[in-house]
Design a protein around this nucleic acid. Structure first.
Lengths: 341, 341
DNA sequence: CACGCCCGTGAGAGCGTTCTCACACAAGCG
DNA sequence: CGCTTGTGTGAGAACGCTCTCACGGGCGTG
């Protein structure tokens, strides 16, 4: 390995220093844009850097600065295919965008099963990242605990189940569910069903509770046969809708707790010969790109994802800078009216 | 910062050594499972590790071992929403699965625009990872070049455009396109259109060329009005199908170069009152989960993704272990028959 | 009984950085 | 003209780990 003629490994600060005829410290200053360097020295160093194609070794730097300039976006989700959910894609985009003009890198960690969660936890604890944004929709997830105990700055996407003191950003899911349901009530719909999200995810539960609140406000009851549990996937939405139609043949509206599920529900309704919105009105949730494209275009509840991701990164950066406060932010949703309701 | 009472920072090897009453070297041996440690010493160390909740600092270790035990899965894709493509989700799953019982971590790097690509490139060059699996479907992408020049082990998913010597794994896209088209021909279809993938992605071009090959074999011509360019999205598939119907009203079959696009095409066909497969037969590509769920279930070309991801990781690991050979692997596709053709 | 051997251990150098200090030198002040 | 002030520079100690090497003690062998 050492006897090979070629340059194995990258050039070091020392090599640059020698070539530039200065000390290692001066090279470091130039590389880090310190002002206290003479123009001549700076020029010499820059030339040497160029010539050797020097790239600083980040590991060595991190070892002394105790900063990695990297944050992890952890997706801890086993049961649904969160990865192919456009909703998740938006989060990723939002976070990268928010950090675009900082020094910070974002890495995504996928933690599908328990094993991967432990791997991700280890990765975080071993000092690879300065902070973590954790999307863990699932209530029995170990990872929030693991990360919190590692004393690594942490912001959750979505309200955690147990009331532990941790910063998070969430949409007002209950408010959104109520918004959707009130919209349907306002159209004079009387038998309003719902395909909920998974009951072991807060987003699912909260949207469901908003649905019930709105019905109760109107003096109606969320009877059991009106409510079926979905799983946030398109297939699940289709199945849920089928069951709903079976249980309540004269259904005239449905609130579906996510857009992919709503697309599945639309398919079932078409197949069953129901017209949307004439026979059955449909409201979804998330305002995914598909909502605009499907037939009919989907009325849906939008969460301000850009705003939410910005809050998450801001909160995380504050924590990384040493602010010990726990912050919580719940963002308002709004209804996007299209043709389906 | 330093005056805070609490334990700032994790315990170090030295602290563990002191508590266990041994030297730093011995602790290191225990932590790294070296056999040359007496049972008593090992026990003492393990207890101290437990008590201090010691976790090795990976950066420090990497600095000397020159191994990070991390590989990056880089998604360099700007134009389509690759992130919400189920196809991509499968790749991620496959790679993590293949590395599940190794020490290696996987981080995902999303590089949507040029800026993010540079950031990702920097990340790789600065020594954060031992190797890279790069999904860059796009022909004008800078990242393959950047990574290759950094002399970091690299395996591409998908054949690169310029013939540079780099290891890659690809599906036989041309073969798959031919397979699909021959299947349609075998059903006696005569006017077979295609909605292609993007022409600046090899997967798109190759599937298209397979389509033409099969037509020519049958003595037919891929007339211009039979071919429209799609973009691998559902919306694009719907639009492409609409254009196709307009240009060729008596179309009796279509090969759509991805399943999401095929789903869009089905929607258009339904809306236009064409029965599938009676009036128009449809074959997709990818065997995405949706293919099973849609109406009618989609006949589609499957690529052996599990096999492909395994090859990619194997090849990368070999490179990381110092094997300088460039390897190439093209995997066979097969047809999955369902109801749409 | 002396010799070599292996085994468990610890001392210490090094990995590539940053950062604190101290130093040399120039310039400005009384 | 001595004194402080400031500015550019370099020496060297960290950072937390691995790994080579040397050393002492127990054992088997001739």
């Amino acid at each position: 390995m050492t006897s090979t003629g070629g340059r194995i490994g990258s050039p070091t600060l020392d090599e640059v220093a020698e070539l530039a005829g200065v000390s290692r410290a001066t090279v470091s200053r130039v590389v880090n844009d310190s002002p206290r360097v003479s123009p001549e020295a700076r020029e010499a160093v820059l030339q040497a850097v160029e010539q050797l194609r020097y790239v600083p070794n980040r590991l060595a730097r991190s070892l002394v600065t105790r900063r990695t300039d990297t944050i992890a976006l952890v997706l801890s989700e086993s049961k649904t295919q969160i990865f192919s959910d456009p909703f998740f894609a938006s989060i990723v985009r939002g976070v990268s965008a928010a950090l675009a003009d900082t020094e910070l890198n974002v890495v995504l960690l996928a933690a599908r099963d328990e094993r991967e969660q432990e791997k991700a936890g280890r990765y975080v604890r071993q000092g690879h990242v300065d902070g973590v944004i954790l999307m863990s929709m699932h209530n029995d997830d170990l990872l929030p605990e693991i990360v919190a105990e590692a004393h690594v700055p942490l912001v959750l996407f979505g309200r955690p189940q147990n009331g532990r003191a941790v910063s998070f950003v969430d949409a007002d899911n209950a408010g959104g569910g109520a918004l959707a349901t009130r919209h349907l009530l306002g159209q004079g719909r009387a038998r309003i069903g719902t395909v909920t999200g998974r009951h072991d995810m807060n987003a699912g539960l909260d949207r469901f509770s908003g649905y019930r609140t709105a019905l109760e406000e109107a003096g109606l009851q969320a009877r059991g046969e009106l409510c079926v549990e979905g799983d946030f996937t398109e297939a699940g939405g289709a199945r849920g809708m089928a069951r709903l139609l079976e249980q309540v043949p004269d259904l005239d509206a449905v609130f579906v707790a996510s857009d992919p599920m709503a697309v599945g529900a639309l398919r079932t309704l078409h197949a069953a010969g129901r017209r949307v919105p004439e026979d059955v009105a449909v409201v979804g949730f998330d305002d995914a790109p598909i909502a605009r494209e499907c037939d009919p275009p989907l009325t849906t509840v939008a969460q301000p994802l850009a705003e939410m991701t910005r809050h998450m990164t801001d909160m995380l950066l504050r924590q990384i800078d040493g602010d010990p406060d726990v912050e919580v932010r719940v963002c308002e949703t709004h209804l996007v009216r299209r043709a389906s309701a």
